[in-house]
Amino acid sequence: MTALPLTPALPRTRRERLRWTLADGWTIARSNLVHWTRNPAAVLNALLYPIVMVLLFGYVFGSAMNVAGGGDYREFLMPGMYAQSMTMGVMTTMIIIATGSARGVTDRFRSMPISQAAVVLGRSFADMVNSVLELAVLLACGLVVGWGWHRGAGAALAAVGLLLLLRFALIWVGIYVGLALTPESASAAWMPLLPITMLADTFVSPALMPGWMRVIAEWNPLSATVAACRELFGNPGWGGDSWAAQHALWLAIGWPALITLVFLPLSARRYRRLNR
């Protein structure tokens, strides 16, 4: 056997291992981000879609809408648009995870001495960067159509934080579901997803919905984030006297925390079980 040219030693200490994990996570995140810069059409598409939705809902449907407590519909609408776009972001995670499994990329990672945490870390970092960009475009778009924040920059930032928290929690759902799906079925996931984002206080007040639907809409995690954002931005809300509507702010933290608590271990388990 000839001498092999390069063999960095495996990490021995916990600190070395952490350093490897962070370095690997960054490497994977960076290559994911490069994809964006190389694919302007996809970026434009991803950014244009929410703008079209704002115009569609803000002006086409919006002209027929009345906000329950009075106030401008587009002011009411925008926090819903933000949260919907964060929720639909789970599609990105799901498709990339499903494609990686189908194309053997996941297996190649698993055949290398890389901690799986690094792979997930890189994935979630890249997804969060994408989401921040998307949200920034949407916020700018909101400002153009007459939306604004009225309770100071601190509260507005807190609202942005809640939106990103929801997106972060959904990364784990995306990984868990994406590992079990083919790329084709992952791409079809918008079908069940879209109604879920609308069966909430995103576009209309749940008070206008039939009884059973109203309960679902009120307790939809999305509703909590949307209601909390309306409150923090100082936009008109629909009020609502249910417990869920009264405690939106806490639920906007509680729901994502619960989702993460459930789906993070589940997706870690599914990763480990790929060797079965």
């Binding site: 390069l6 960095p8 490897w20 370095a23 690997d24 490497t27 994977i28 290559s31 490069v34 994809h35 190389r38 694919n39 194309r103 053997g104 990329v105 297996d107 190649r108 990672f109 290398m112 890389i114």
Partner: peptide
């Protein structure tokens, strides 16, 4: 594996540099 797992959007050099960094070179 049976199918190449190379990244189509990256260049050949970028692919290998990425795998090199993941091998902690």
């Amino acid at each position: 594996g049976q199918q190449p797992t190379v990244d189509e959007i990256l260049t050949g050099r970028e692919n290998l540099e990425m795998w090199g960094r993941l091998r902690h070179l």
